[in-house]
């Protein structure tokens, strides 16, 4: 799993039937210090509660399809956890920890 920050969302009306009801979020990948690095991507929210600004854990490819019940779902990135605020502060280091 990797860290990401939810920065937005995507709306699709026409989509694969198994994506019905699945929230699609735009995620900025993060380093282990929670600094942005790399290109944003779309992830399916498998916990159903990821909001903009949240630090999340994400799994990819075959592991991402495992995040949803049912035989198949065409996703290659899934949000599987919301990082606790205290953990996020520690990862960001003292500078960020003071301001948050």
């Amino acid at each position: 799993m990797r860290f990401g920050r939810v920065v937005g969302n995507v709306v699709c009306t026409a989509k694969d039937a198994n994506l019905e009801g699945v929230k699609l979020m735009v995620v900025q990948p993060l380093t282990q210090r929670l600094e942005p690095r790399g290109a944003m991507y779309i992830a399916a929210d498998a916990v159903g509660q990821a909001g903009v600004g949240q630090i999340v854990t994400v799994v990819f490819s075959a592991d991402a399809t495992q995040a949803f019940p049912g035989p198949q779902i065409p996703v290659d990135a899934s949000i599987v956890g919301l990082i606790d605020a205290a953990t996020a502060s520690i990862l960001q280091g003292a500078d960020e920890g003071v301001s948050s």
């Binding site: 920065v7 969302n9 995507v10 026409a14 694969d16 903009v52």
Partner: peptide, 12 residues
């Protein structure tokens, strides 16, 4: 595979 036609994308 194309699995959705995008209507709206909002970022920040």
């Amino acid at each position: 595979a194309i699995v959705g036609i995008i209507d709206v994308v909002e970022v920040e």
